[in-house]
Design a protein around this nucleic acid. Sequence first.
DNA 1: TCAGCGCTGTGATTTCTGTCACATTGTGAA
DNA 2: TTCACAATGTGACAGAAATCACAGCGCTGA
Lengths: 205, 205
Amino acid sequence: MNWKQLFPQFEPELIDLIEKNAVERSFRTGEVIMRTGQYIKSTVLVLEGQIKIYRENADGGEFLMYYLGPGQACAVSMICAIQSQTSEIMAQAEEDTEVLMIPIQLMDDMMNKYKSWYQFVIQTYRGRFDELLSVVDNIAFRNMDERLEFYLKRYAGKSGKKTIELSHQQIADDLNSSREVISRLLKKMEQQKLVKLYRNMIELV
Amino acid sequence: MNWKQLFPQFEPELIDLIEKNAVERSFRTGEVIMRTGQYIKSTVLVLEGQIKIYRENADGGEFLMYYLGPGQACAVSMICAIQSQTSEIMAQAEEDTEVLMIPIQLMDDMMNKYKSWYQFVIQTYRGRFDELLSVVDNIAFRNMDERLEFYLKRYAGKSGKKTIELSHQQIADDLNSSREVISRLLKKMEQQKLVKLYRNMIELV
DNA sequence: TCAGCGCTGTGATTTCTGTCACATTGTGAA
DNA sequence: TTCACAATGTGACAGAAATCACAGCGCTGA
């Protein structure tokens, strides 16, 4: 895939280096890309699709933190990579996805030599950190109805559509809630003319 | 203050640079060091005491995220500093505290020239990111009783003591809960012989 | 066509947490 | 000592959310 346009800020030399050393890889919708406790050997750049980054607990509960789209990188894979540590998160393809995997051995060198890479890493840290902060805000200060609204808007936002093709169960899983609660809240939102409900689909109005 | 021993990994040259350019500053217990929305002009290293990093919402609710002790640095001030952005968090002195403030203008240079500084920054990112992940875990998956237990153990851990000199109200604030709830849960823990309760003090057993 | 299964709607009940009201106790200052 | 105030204890109640039970509904494949 021709990915250079996704990273216009990278110097030609850097692009060369990546091209020579990185591996492209595809994942189908639903495939797990990275698992809690797994060793990290590469830094992951997303070229196409969407990756869902979430936390899993012992009882099988899940909790969505954020998505990564084209042009974004996994901050955890960068931080861990530098220190060859294990990941503390789960990453799963939300759509069919293409990624670029850059071996960790290159990281130090790239950080030192290429200003644009250094900037990119810093930006990535900053972005994910901010997203985690807003996640904390949501669960610390908001009730499920507001969290659901936030969830739907973000989901719609990332694809640019006004429709959300998910079952209530899938939404409940992402929010670590239960299907009934989500169904009821959605009904309330429908009565307030905020959404229209269909089978496997929700339309924002 | 003689702070060099807190950062034994720093090269002599780096220490020189910091010594020439950084400003030492003291804060008394309870003083706010950094406020949400405030511009960041320096990277903050903690020399002595404890700083509490927390989030605040519009209704006056607070939510503790983590503490910074001697030898640690504020990840947010590093990330923001590099891009001259505003802080999204509150920082308050939990005890009388000494910090070292390094002007942001030096950051780029230090990152490039001093390997030990680069390592330190990466380590700081990693550490705070992990702590945020465990914060997310706690509020997403755990009930107040477990969160309280975690809170008490962490609080005791950071000072090395088995006693916690806080009122129930202060604990409730940190957990964005209410005093009555904390009192009741503590009573339950006392019945289970997990703690002993005194006025303004809790002892772990 | 219809049988089956997954999705959605809804009531009843329980648990957890927050809120209000008020009693009790400990401590320090006058 | 005594008063005032902060800290703690506790009951009653309210609301959010989880759980259980079950009823329809819609799509899909035989």
